[in-house]
Design a protein around this nucleic acid. Structure first.
Length: 670
DNA sequence: CGCCCTCGAGTTCC
DNA sequence: CTCGAGGGCG
């Protein structure tokens, strides 16, 4: 092959790849498959390796970057890179607009036009183009001076090296956000996990860390991308509005977020803020709010700056899903089965609207795996929008004063020695008399799903124990109104309610009572299977361990636990006392195995119009099974309002998903 | 024996 | 909701 034809092929490939990049990163509309892209890229690399003299700085292969020497030099920003003022809530946003009005001498009637943009959670950068060519990329730094990270910026494919403008201005500065797509972030962490490396905490920090890599090759290996949101030009400013500058950036070849919306007034801006709050989870990038800018550039000029922030823009911040806080202490909870679980007491912080002050650390192994110490700064988030969890410790924030937590060898409630059976994750207090366990067991007994005794909760149980009125669950049924009235915060009326609730609870379905007794390995499902098999407490008491273990889905471990519980002298006394107190469970029917929905299994999730147990009872009456988790074997997942991961899982597994309405229709059909 | 499906247990906040 | 572990099945 002649040198000339090689040169031609190289030039052609470069043009092709640049076009592919443009279509992929900027238009978000790939013109070729990934394979075709790789083939072209590979061919170009091959030719360039064979002919290194033909490599030019602007070849797409050079995006992987040449090594950089030493620290990042600082650069002076041509225009200061300011930060935005944060506003939280509608009230603060209205206050902000009122300040604008005052400054512009506008009356309350005059509407101001705004542009709303999703606020991408990434790293702000400034990009300078001279005569259409990228010459400098820098971080925000202190606003006046930033770090020169040009080498790393050039590895980001979404950032054009050359503007796609016929006539490029002598100088143009574009600002925007470098970020990592959520899907890419997950892939990245998956790989880290497979390789046994430390996981990245969140996309934002990872993006920030990535552009500050010493070796541009390391940056190139990270899936970074970019959105432009601001144009800075000293000359050639024929633009009247911010929106026009965004269109111009788009024409110039920058990716601009397509969700940007023009709002005629603050009301529309607030609508966007509300819309985005629900929409943002759908997008493949993390956002922590909405940036609201005055659209008119004339007005922007007139408004100017206060200190280091422009008056004409505001960052509306949503309540964050993740927060940094401090571990004040680590404590131990004793559960009803004696399980010792560590809890972190945290400096209270707001997450997604609620104040969080503690988080479970699950067990000893988890505590050590995450290496959580008292005094540590930690990132916490809400798993499934509700339950706080510690994501990771900020190791860089340690100063040596942090104290490691040593798992106790004695129960903090009763002092008995604890045990951790070989191969198990849970440390247990095995003292049957342990007061903490007793209290938890009593709480469990009265709780919803168990005996469901109205008006008796954690507080009252604690009071009754302290007053010496109850020791075991049977004692509850001997309580009198007079005894209750003597307690604090308990008047005639409430006392009567408690007595009535106890009276009403004396004939529970057998399964409920079995579950309420708190026998190890007996949850709601197993309790129902046992109740259906034996029908009455008496039959169960006469059953052998093998008979119990022989029930399908019950098995030897639960079988042994039940038999041992029944044989325990103390438990036999409790059962006698319950009977003496008038507690007589209803005899249970054998499980229904026929009916129109026989053999079908249902999972209910999200907020439905009635309590979930009611739906579960309904399908069970028709011969179906109600389960808590979705798998390939699930027939229907009925989804209510704000569903969680179960709806998603159903989608993935191709399980039929029904809305409540569709579910009702299904029942009507049969 | 290993894998998948379920269930149990502990947990937070309003 | 999540983790761990029991139960069933290949």
């Amino acid at each position: 092959m002649s040198t000339e034809s090689i040169q031609n092929e190289i030039a052609q490939l470069r043009e092709q790849i640049n076009e592919y990049n443009y279509r992929y990163y900027i238009k978000d509309d790939p013109s070729v498959s990934d394979e075709e892209y790789d083939v072209a890229f590979h061919r170009l690399t091959e030719l360039e390796t064979a002919h290194p003299e033909l490599i030019t700085d602007d070849s797409p292969t050079q995006r992987v970057g040449a090594p950089l020497d030493g620290e990042f030099p600082t650069v002076q920003h041509r225009h200061p890179m300011l930060s935005l003022q944060d506003v939280r809530g509608e009230g603060e946003l209205r206050d902000w607009e009122n300040r604008l009005r005052r400054h512009l001498h506008l009356d309350a009637e005059t509407e101001i036009e705004y542009v709303c943009e999703p606020k991408i959670d990434g790293l702000a950068v400034s990009l300078v183009y001279e005569n259409g060519h990228l010459t400098q990329g820098a971080t925000r730094g202190d606003g006046q001076r930033g770090e020169n990270i040009t080498g790393n910026i050039r590895t980001i494919r979404a950032i054009p090296w050359k503007l796609r403008l016929g006539e490029a201005p002598p100088e143009l500065e574009a600002r925007g956000e470098v970020y990592i797509k959520r899907s890419e972030f997950e892939k990245l962490n998956q790989r880290q996990e497979e390789e046994g490396k430390q996981l990245y905490a969140n996309p934002r920090n990872t993006a920030a860390g990535s552009v500050r890599q010493k070796d541009p090759k390391a940056t190139a290996a990270r899936p970074l991308t970019f959105f432009a949101y601001q144009l800075q030009t000293s000359e050639g400013g024929n633009f009247k509005t911010h929106l026009e500058t965004l269109d111009y950036l788009r024409e110039a070849g920058f990716p601009v977020n397509g969700k940007v919306r023009l709002c005629k007034n603050l009301r529309e801006a607030l609508e966007f803020v509300e819309y985005w709050q629900t929409q943002r989870d759908e997008e493949d990038y993390a956002t922590d709010g909405v940036v609201i800018k005055v659209n008119s550039l004339n007005l922007q000029d007139e408004l100017g700056f206060v200190g280091r922030t422009p008056r004409w823009a505001a960052a509306y911040k949503y309540a964050p899903e993740e927060q940094v806080t401090k571990v004040l202490d680590i404590g131990i909870n004793v559960g009803r089965t004696g399980a010792l679980t560590p809890v972190a007491f945290l400096e209270p912080v707001q997450i997604a609207g609620t104040v969080v002050s503690k988080a479970t650390l699950h067990n000893e192994d988890e505590l050590h795996r995450k290496d959580i110490r008292v005094g540590d700064k930690v990132i916490i988030r809400k798993a499934g929008e509700i339950i706080p969890e510690v994501v990771k410790v900020l190791l860089d924030e340690r100063n040596g004063s942090e104290e490691e937590f040593h798992f106790p060898e004695n129960c903090p409630a009763c002092g008995a020695q604890v045990v951790r059976p070989e191969g198990e994750a849970i440390v247990r207090c095995v003292n049957a008399e342990c007061p903490a366990q007793r209290e938890r067991l009593l709480q469990h007994f009265v709780s919803r799903g168990a005996m469901d005794i109205d008006g008796v909760g954690e507080k009252l149980i604690a009071q009754l124990i302290a007053a010496g009125l109850i020791i075991d669950v049977a004692d509850l049924f001997t309580l009198t109104k007079e005894q209750l009235i003597d307690l604090e915060r308990m008047a005639e009326k409430s006392a009567q309610n408690v007595v009535t609730a106890l009276e009403n609870a004396k004939h529970p379905p057998l399964a409920r009572l079995l579950f309420a007794l708190g026998i190890r390995h007996v949850g709601t499902q197993t309790a129902e299977l046992i109740a259906a098999r034996f029908g009455s407490l008496e039959n169960l008491q006469n059953a052998t361990q093998e008979e119990i273990a022989g029930i399908p889905e019950v098995g030897p471990v639960a079988g042994q636990a039940v038999r041992e519980w029944l044989d325990e002298e103390h438990n036999q006394k409790v059962l006698l006392k319950l009977a003496a107190g008038g507690v007589h469970p209803q005899t249970a029917e054998p499980a229904k195995t026929d009916g129109p929905l026989a053999g079908k299994s249902f999972v209910f999730t999200g907020t439905l119009s009635r309590p979930r147990p009611e739906f579960e009872a309904q399908v069970k009456a028709l011969g179906a099974k109600a389960s808590g988790s979705v798998s390939k074997k699930t027939d229907y997942v009925v989804v209510g309002e704000s569903p969680g991961s179960k709806a998603q899982k159903a989608e993935e597994l191709g399980v039929k998903v029904l809305s409540e309405g569709e579910f009702v229709a299904l029942l009507n059909e049969i």
